[in-house]
Each structure stands twice: as structure tokens, then as C-alpha cells.
Nucleic acid binder design. Structure first.
Lengths: 232, 232
DNA sequence: CAAACAGGCATTGTATACAACTTTGTGTCC
DNA sequence: GGACACAAAGTTGTATACAATGCCTGTTTG
């Protein structure tokens, strides 16, 4: 789970570790939406048989990170505009409540962990590695869900964040560059103060900001599906 | 997807249809929590190879319907008391909002479909098939999520309802026999009237009723884990 | 007699082989 | 010259074979 992403040369790789590696690579925008994920290709990369690769791909398909079509194989999912709205609406429903819960349960070590996440994120941004920054930004939300001690909802949020990464890859508009910066920091402060109301409200506005920073207008001339066709 | 549940004699069975058949069987309480699901056993039942069965089991594991432990095989999940609380808390967070949305979008044919679901459910109860009634009751909630036109959240609700079926199998207390009866009917009326507020409130109270109809106190002497040990 | 170890048995994890389907390229016919 | 048809290549779906792990039982020893 360190820096190694796609290669992961030799290990007692179970299918889950391959799924994890692919997931991180997608999170970091090292693999673009629509990219074909051939079974033989992955099997050779990871030094395992197609059996294991198929299991990993199935796991990712369940999170909606990859699309598997019968006899057509797997490719990185490219969420539609409707799906993008749905994902962020779901996040706006789940995460504010989760942030409130996190404010109730957060310990001082949790706060410290979150602050390290933020500084890692900034470091990645300074290192001109926006993909990694995005991945860490997602981990921040995942971590809050974990702190809230609702494993079930945390699982849902995990998949929503994963899909958000794909959505951002497809629909992010550069104009809204400095989107959050200190939004996460303010949230951590609310958690540290155990201010449930503020944590909930900060999370809600943070997500609304993210949602509105996407360009989710239908492209003229179906540029979208053309792009998909090209990337396949 | 008709009445046939476990056997499903011969068909171009893909792994998904096997997962579906097992899912229905679990929903209908034909397979108890903790039951071992051997790969060879299922492969013979459905007339396919273990490869296909494994894929189906993996799908069910993603929904938390079965537990897969490495080198130990798969068995029907038996949610802990903590998980039971989490599942119903998640439902109480998601479904009222979904019911509100459903009230907005419900068409007359949707209403008719829901009413048929209710009468089917009552018919199953009259036929002394409480398992099937429970399955249909779950379908009712699934259907509302579909009507709400939020596929993402609907997917979450599907897995929550599936897990609820396991929770009810484990923790239902007979005392609270006539739990709902007309709760679903009242909900449909609110949807038909497009009364969003009432639909949301009815769903919330319905779920609170369900939640409180469970016996989620810790058993004395760990009866729970003993039962698990026996059923394995 | 109880506890612990060892061996056999059963089941799962992984790899490979084969079958089926999709796709792509070529050829022929209109 | 274009369109349809067929064939070949490559990829996925499924089955089977083998390896590895865990479980159970029978024996042995303190």
C-alpha cells in the first residue's frame, strides 16, 4: 500500500492486492476512463494467471470502477453525466451525517492522522503530482467515514469516492482550480472541537462546492461518447 | 426469476443467475445464516464448474450476503448485533429520502405495480409462506428505490435489504408478529398522492418500527456464537 | 486420562487447456 | 466502387487438473 502502484513486481499477490493496486492507479489518474483492461495483459504484468485477474476485475466491477461486458472484457468505467450527479447526490446525503458522527467519535490520534493526510496532500500538490493529491484527498473522506464508526456506510462512501475519482477525471473544469485547499483543514478543526453541527455543515458545503466545480452540461455533438470510442 | 429458487435445473446459467438464485433462497429463509456453501456442492447442484460458482459466491460476498474466508470457503453471513444496528441506521438514513424522491417521480403504473406487490405479499402470508412474504416485502423497498430514479442509492438499498433479511432471520422476535401489515399500503397511498413529506415520514417510522422489532440485546452466555458453531 | 502431535482426507486457491464469441481483415459479388 | 459474407486472429467464458491449506481423527506420550 506504499508508493508502488501498477507494477508491484513479485509478491504473494492475492486477487485483492491486484484490485487494490489497480484501484490506486485509477484513483491517481494513471489509467484513464475507458482504458481496456485485458486479462492476459494484466496477468502477465502481475505474474499471475487470468483466474486471479478475473477475480480482481470482478471486485472492481462491483465498485463500479470498471465495466465488464460479457464477451467484451473489462475497461475502466466512464460514468455518464447522470451517474455523476447521482454519485454526488449520494455523497451529499451520506457524508454530512457521517462527518457529524465522526465529530462525536474522533480521538486525538484520529485528528493527528487526518492532519498528516492533509499535509501529505499538500506535499503531493507541491510535487506537481495532482493525481496523488486527488487520491489522498479521497482517502481523507474515507478516513472520516472510518472514524464515524459506521462500517456499512463507510463502505458505501468508499465506492462513491472511487467513482468520484473517475468523474473528476472526466468532468473537472480547470477554471475552478483552487477548489478546496483549506476546506479539509476547517473540517478537521470542527472535528477536533467536536462541533457536530459545524462538521456536518462544512462537509455539506464542501461537497456542494465539489459538485458545482464539475462541468456536467451535456457536450455539444456528443463529444463524450466520441471520446469514449477513441479511448477504447 | 419466477418461482424456481434453488434447483434451476438446466439453463444457460451464467454466474449471475446462480448468485440471483442463491440470493432469493437466502431472502426467503430457505438457507439459514451460517450454512456452509461448498463449491463442489453448488457446482453439482447447478451443473456448472466451480469456476462459475466461485464467481457467484464472490458476487454475494460483495453484497455481504455470504462470508468468504481464505482457505475456509463460503458460508451464509450471520451479521453481528453491531452490524444489524448499522444496517438499519443506514436504511433510516437512505430510505426516507428515497421515499420522498419516489413520491416525486411515481407514475400511475408504478403505483399499480407496488399495489400488486402488496397483494402478492399478503397472498404469500395467507399461504403460510412467510419466507416468500419477507422476500416480497424486501422487493417492495427495492422497487421504491428504483422509482426514485437514483440507481446508485438504489444499489446500496438493495444490499441493505439483503442483509436485513439475514438480520431478521437471526434477531426477529415473535412477540412483534403483526409488524407492518398496512405500513406498506399507507406508503403507497402517500406516493399516489405525491405527498413527499408524508412518504418520507411514513418510511422513517416504518423503518424505526422494524428496527425496534428486533431483539438486538446481547445474548447471555454468547448463545449467538454457539448457534453459529452448530449451524456450521 | 488428557493433551498434543502427526498423518490422511476434504476443500479451497491457482494455473492451464479448451470452447465460444467478438472483432477485424480480406475477398468476392453485385 | 461499395457492400456483404466469410474466415482468421485474438480475447473472454468455462472446465479440469494440480497444488496448498485447513480440518479431523487416531495414535502416542506425559
Amino acid at each position: 500500500m506504499a508508493h508502488s502502484t501498477v507494477p508491484t513486481p513479485t509478491r504473494p499477490t492475492t486477487s485483492d492486492s491486484i484490485a487494490q493496486a489497480l484501484s490506486v492507479a485509477i484513483h491517481e489518474h494513471k489509467i484513464a476512463p475507458g482504458t481496456k483492461l485485458g486479462e492476459d495483459e494484466l496477468a502477465e504484468i502481475y505474474g499471475v494467471s487470468r483466474t486471479v485477474v478475473r477475480a480482481a476485475l470482478q471486485t472492481l466491477a462491483h465498485m463500479k470502477l470498471v465495466d465488464i461486458r460479457r464477451n467484451r472484457g473489462a475497461s475502466v468505467a466512464s460514468p455518464s453525466i447522470k451517474e455523476a450527479h447521482e454519485v454526488f447526490e449520494a455523497r451529499e446525503l451520506l457524508e454530512p451525517r457521517t462527518a457529524r458522527s465522526a465529530a462525536k467519535y474522533a480521538t486525538s490520534s484520529d485528528i493527528a492522522l487526518l492532519e498528516r493526510h492533509i499535509s501529505d496532500e499538500h506535499a503531493a500538490l507541491d510535487a506537481a503530482d495532482p493525481g496523488r493529491a486527488l487520491y489522498l484527498s479521497g482517502l481523507f473522506h474515507t478516513e472520516i467515514a472510518r472514524i464515524a464508526q459506521q462500517a456499512t456506510i463507510a463502505g458505501f462512501i468508499d465506492t462513491l469516492i472511487a467513482r468520484s475519482s473517475l468523474i473528476i477525471a472526466l468532468y473537472w473544469r480547470r477554471e475552478s482550480a483552487l477548489c478546496e485547499k483549506h476546506a479539509h483543514h476547517a473540517l478537521v478543526q470542527a472535528l477536533a472541537k467536536k462541533d457536530e453541527q459545524q462538521a456536518e455543515e462544512l462537509m455539506r458545503s464542501h461537497l456542494v462546492d465539489l459538485h458545482s466545480a464539475l462541468d456536467l452540461r451535456e457536450r455539444n455533438g456528443r463529444t463524450q461518447s466520441l471520446k469514449d470510442a477513441l479511448s477504447q
